[in-house]
Write a protein that binds this DNA or RNA. Structure first.
Lengths: 148, 148
DNA sequence: CGGGATCCATTCCGATACTG
DNA sequence: CAGTATCGGAATGGATCCCG
């Protein structure tokens, strides 16, 4: 039983198990010719696992913002990464991009319905992070002093 | 107004806004001498944003597993990354590690209470990923054909 | 203003070999 | 069985310059 899909066809005789809840029986899936992005979880993690995606989703969940506004909200992001991350979020359908042909041009980014639906469970996770950050840092400090 | 904490003290006169829900008023936080890991969200993302963390949390949310079992469940993980990721998860207090001094030795990993509490909102997010993967891939295909 | 293009440092991660 | 150590390639991301 293999966990989550993997690249290539190296394990064509194996199966992949989609684990989710302990209350749900495990489902076996043929792994032959299954590619990386076929696994929803690996796909999502590889996307929003980036350094900036979640921060931008957080901002745009509030309201629409222009490129320069976002840049000022995340002061330590480079222009390159801001552009690139916004493109990826747009490509996945989480945010929309509208160009206003003013001089100089302005571009506004806004969350889509799909993006809002993603942000719901995501916000819960971020709330957890904030609520439990002290516990995590305590565990970390304890481990660093004497690895259990 | 800056979004989320950043490194160093370069923006000592700025403030950071913790954004979360549109229903919650924005809170301003002094950014002076605030380091990277002081932001719970950035900290969490940099941790579980890795390639393997979520998969291992998913597995261990089911039941305890031994090192070799986890390795077989995630066949495309290297021994190096399995060890490393498990250490990080243990360090943050999400999982525990117990050594049984048999010959040869066996080591069992199990989720902690903190890990289970993290897995609750995380599982919701993963459920979303599975439920909406088709929509994401459709948006991606559409974008690749003609960038909106 | 909102990018694109290029170069470079760092980090991540896989492969391999070795060990108690 | 469950690691550790080392190496090298791949991917990530920052800095800088240019452009309509």
């Amino acid at each position: 039983m293999a966990l989550r899909y993997q690249k290539g066809t190296a394990l064509s005789t194996s199966t992949v198990v989609n684990l989710r809840s302990t209350k749900v029986p495990l489902r076996a899936v043929d792994i032959s010719k299954v590619t990386f992005t076929d696994c929803p979880v690996r796909d999502l993690i590889s996307q929003i696992g980036g350094k900036w995606s979640v921060l931008l989703l957080e901002a745009l969940a509030q309201r629409s913002y222009r490129f320069g506004e976002l840049r000022r909200m995340v002061p330590d992001i480079s222009q390159r990464m801001l552009t690139q991350t916004l493109r990826e979020l747009q490509r996945d359908g989480y945010i929309g991009r509208e160009v206003f042909p003013t001089k100089p041009p302005s571009v506004e980014y806004r969350m889509t319905d799909l993006g809002y639906s993603l942000y719901e469970p995501l916000a819960q996770l971020l709330n957890w992070a904030e609520a439990n950050h002290d516990a995590v840092r305590a565990a970390r400090a304890s481990f660093d002093q004497s690895p259990d």
